[in-house]
C-alpha cells in the first residue's frame, strides 16, 4: 500500500492532476480506453480517504470525479493529438502499479510521469526504416519474387518521408492514409516501369501495408470486449475509414493507369 495520506484539498488536487496526467499520456499514445479507466481509478482509489472514484473515458477525452470528506471534485480533460507509442503505455501502466504498491509521494510521482512523457521514442529515421521493411517483407509474404522487395521498400520509404514532412500540417488520419496509399502505388508503378520490380500487384500490396490501422483494429475489438462499446464503435469506424482511404488512394492510381495516363 501507498502510505502517503491525503491531508487537505491541495493534496486532492495534486492527486487528480497526477491521475489525469497519467490518463492523458496513455490515451494520447494509443491505449485502450478500459486500460486508461483502470489506471485512473487505480491511482485515485489507492488513497484511503478518497471515495467514490469514477472515471468515464472516451477516445477523445475523459471525466474524473472523486469524493473527499463529503466534497465532490470533478475534472474534464480533452485529449486531441493521438499518436502511437506502445512503450509509453507500458511505462505508465507499470508506474500506476508501482504508485499503488510502493511509497511514492505525489510530487515524486508527478516527476516520474513527466520523465515518462519526455522519453524520446525511437529516432524518426529508424521508425521510417521499420515501416519500409514492413512493406518489403509483406510483398514477399504475398508471393512476390525477391526482386519485388526493393521497389516496395523504396516506394514506402519515400512516401513515409513525405508523410513525415506533411505531418506538421496536422492532416487527419483519413487524408494521411489517402496520400500515403496514393504515393506508394504511384511509386510502385514507376518502379515497375523502370524495370526494378516484376509483380506490380505484390509491390503495391506490400507498400500500402504500413498504413494498415493495426492499433485501431486491436483497440476497437478489445474495448468492445470489455464493455466499452462507445469507444469500440468509434475506433472501429476509424479503422473502416482508414481502410477506405487506402482503397481510394490505390483505386485512383489504378484508374489513371487503366486509362493510360501513367
Amino acid at each position: 500500500m501507498n502510505h502517503f495520506i491525503i491531508k487537505n484539498r491541495k493534496d486532492v488536487q495534486k492527486l487528480s492532476t497526477l491521475a489525469i496526467f497519467a490518463g492523458k499520456t496513455m490515451l494520447s499514445n494509443g491505449a485502450e480506453t478500459y486500460r486508461v479507466e483502470d489506471t485512473i481509478n487505480r491511482i485515485c482509489s489507492s488513497k484511503e480517504n478518497i471515495k467514490e472514484v469514477d472515471s468515464f473515458v472516451t477516445q477523445s477525452g475523459f471525466f474524473l470525479t472523486l469524493e473527499y470528506e463529503g466534497e465532490i471534485f470533478t475534472y474534464l480533460k480533452r485529449v486531441k493529438d493521438v499518436g502511437i507509442n506502445l512503450n509509453k503505455i507500458n511505462l505508465v501502466n507499470d508506474f500506476s502499479r508501482q504508485f499503488v504498491n510502493q511509497d511514492i509521494s505525489l510530487e515524486k510521482g508527478m516527476k516520474t510521469l513527466d520523465e515518462i512523457n519526455n522519453i524520446p521514442g525511437y529516432p524518426k529515421y529508424l521508425k521510417i526504416l521499420g515501416g519500409s521493411y514492413v512493406s518489403g517483407f509483406f510483398s514477399l509474404m504475398y508471393g512476390g519474387s525477391p526482386q519485388d522487395f526493393l521497389p516496395s521498400f523504396i516506394a514506402s520509404f519515400i512516401s513515409l518521408i513525405i508523410l513525415d514532412k506533411l505531418s506538421k500540417f496536422n492532416l487527419t488520419f483519413f487524408i494521411d492514409r489517402f496520400i500515403g496509399a496514393f504515393l506508394s502505388s504511384l511509386l510502385a508503378i514507376f518502379a515497375v516501369k523502370l524495370g526494378i520490380g516484376v509483380n506490380l500487384d505484390k509491390i503495391i500490396i506490400g507498400s500500402i501495408m504500413y498504413l494498415v490501422p493495426g492499433v485501431s483494429i486491436t483497440n476497437s475489438i478489445r474495448d468492445t470486449m470489455s464493455g466499452d462499446s462507445l469507444s469500440g464503435l468509434s475506433k472501429g469506424i476509424e479503422a473502416i475509414l482508414s481502410a477506405l482511404a487506402i482503397a481510394f488512394g490505390v483505386g485512383i492510381v489504378l484508374n489513371l493507369k487503366s486509362k493510360g495516363w501513367i
Binding site: L86, N90, G130, V134
Partner: peptide, 13 residues
Amino acid sequence: FATIGFAIYFGAP
C-alpha cells in the same frame, strides 16, 4: 521481420 518492423514503427518497448 515484418512484425518486427511494425513493432518499431509503433514504438514498442
